[in-house]
Nucleic acid binder design. Sequence first.
DNA 1: TACGTTGTACGAGTTTTCTCGAACCAATCC
DNA 2: GGATTGGTTCGAGAAAACTCGTACAACGTA
Lengths: 123, 123
Amino acid sequence: MSQESAQTEGIDWRVRPGALAEPEACDIRLEAVMSALSEPLRLTIVRKLMLESDDFDHPCGWFNLGRPKSTLTHHFRALRDAGLIRQRQYGLERRSRLRTEDLDERFPGLLQLVKNWQGRDIV
Amino acid sequence: MSQESAQTEGIDWRVRPGALAEPEACDIRLEAVMSALSEPLRLTIVRKLMLESDDFDHPCGWFNLGRPKSTLTHHFRALRDAGLIRQRQYGLERRSRLRTEDLDERFPGLLQLVKNWQGRDIV
DNA sequence: TACGTTGTACGAGTTTTCTCGAACCAATCC
DNA sequence: GGATTGGTTCGAGAAAACTCGTACAACGTA
């Protein structure tokens, strides 16, 4: 899914300027969400967004994940493609936020599972 | 994890005769569960067990999945290793049932997500 | 004993995912 | 302009997952 083709896929970039391509809420698939959350690093990201974000958007650096930038790009893209996070361009930074409303509506109870997760320390 | 070593891992085969090695309820990991459920065929299996099993155990053939036997072995083992199903040997058949109580206790709401799943038809 | 049934183990081929370096791009700031 | 910053893309290597054929084992039955 490219940003160029997103217009034809129903995403209105005039309403959410700077937003990167993502699936519509109704197109978020359970398999994709499960797959995205099967990775400890991505679980960490989602959980941190949920517990510490205070409704603001955060750039990748905020997460302190201790991995090279290209690795982070990979995982954030996986989360965005699966419909878990929304990313917007703010100047240099690409800020992420959890799609809480969409996920709660589509998969009620899912985020609570992530919230209760006790992962082994990765970082 | 082999059946031989399971005794030392805390599974008491005298209490659940014929049961194959599986993780204890408290050892079921969210990542593993998510990974197991990221596969449409396995989602299908779990959902079918949940909706149609009537509390009985079912052999692989019951599911009518239209895949070679070795493929099914692979997926059922993945589900068992992740802690989603329990398998017991009944003579020739290896019957599977969902670990509903364990899953509801450990990850409340998870099974409901699977229940609501609308997968594309695979079979 | 021979056969059909249910399922395992092994191995191979294919595909996907993860990881990360290197080069690069765009915005900001001195 | 030049350096810094936050991030992308590409490509490659390594690891994992999926699929399936083949061979095999155990059980029941004719």
